[in-house]
């Protein structure tokens, strides 16, 4: 069991660090630009003054936030890796693929689509400067609810898929219809976007690349480790 947990946590943590590194390379320039706009707003409103002391504090504060990319990546990756491991443990026999490595990649693709890509299409990531602090609770509730509905919906249709002897694509179509309905019914993000469109769109594109790199990495690392170590392999005494 400890090997089972170790593989799960190690692959999640490693994929999370990769996610953090991709973010440092691709996402940080957009974050700097967005926070730069926030600073200009603060100077204009008188909330802060454009002084050397401000910039000294700002750079130290940004260094703390940027350093956090890797640590937060490791924590988030370990957490999502734990969920990935649980689902893999229950679903490994029905996942497509003739090896555990391929099965892990298939599961990563399914979880990437249901837990990330579809929620992202409804509630895309936003850089700083976008987002009214007054609506944070509502936005968090909408985002988490959508992910939970999509995830549990996929789980429900997986049960249908498992029970069907033929025409299993009906379960996939069922999930597609279900999530399309939820997509239309759920309220929009209430905040107006006032930041420049190229900044917001560019940020969303690199954010998508970063999270996708995570899911690809977790599928690959977990699959290779599981294939190599097979934690569910046990010794049995045979008499002949």
């Amino acid at each position: 069991m400890s090997l089972f947990i170790t593989i799960i946590l190690l692959s999640g943590c490693s994929a999370g660090v990769i996610h953090g590194l991709v973010n440092l390379a691709l996402v940080e320039p957009y974050l700097d630009k967005a926070i730069g706009i926030e600073n200009q707003h603060m100077f204009a409103s008188g909330e802060a003054k454009d002084t050397s002391q401000f910039w000294a504090e700002y750079y130290s504060y940004r260094a703390w936030q940027k350093g956090g990319q890797l640590l937060a990546g490791a924590i988030l990756g370990t957490a999502i890796g734990a969920l990935f491991g649980i689902v893999f443990g229950y679903a490994k026999n029905i996942l497509p693929g003739n090896s555990f490595a391929k099965k892990a990649l298939a599961l990563a693709a399914i979880m990437w689509i249901t837990l990330y890509l579809i929620p992202f299409a409804k509630y895309p990531a936003n850089p700083p400067t976008v987002g009214d602090p007054e609506t944070i609770l509502l936005r968090q509730m909408l985002y988490v609810s959508f992910i939970a509905i999509s995830g549990f919906g996929a789980l429900g249709f997986y049960q249908v898929f498992r029970r069907l002897k033929s025409k299993r694509f009906v379960a996939v179509l069922g999930y597609a219809g279900f999530i399309a309905t939820v997509f239309v019914v759920m309220p929009q993000n209430p905040d107006a976007i006032t930041a420049p469109a190229d900044l917001v769109n560019g940020f969303r594109a690199v954010s998508l690349v970063g999270v996708s790199a995570f899911w690809l990495s977790v599928g690959l690392i977990f699959g290779v480790l599981w294939q190599k170590l097979q934690p569910d392999r046990v010794k049995q005494a045979r008499f002949q």
Binding site: H19, Q65, K66, G68, A72, N126, P127, Q140, Y143
Partner: peptide, 12 residues
């Protein structure tokens, strides 16, 4: 500490 990852991973 998690601010940048929070934005990058899509959390509000």
């Amino acid at each position: 500490l998690t601010h940048d990852m929070r934005h990058a991973a899509g959390f509000p």
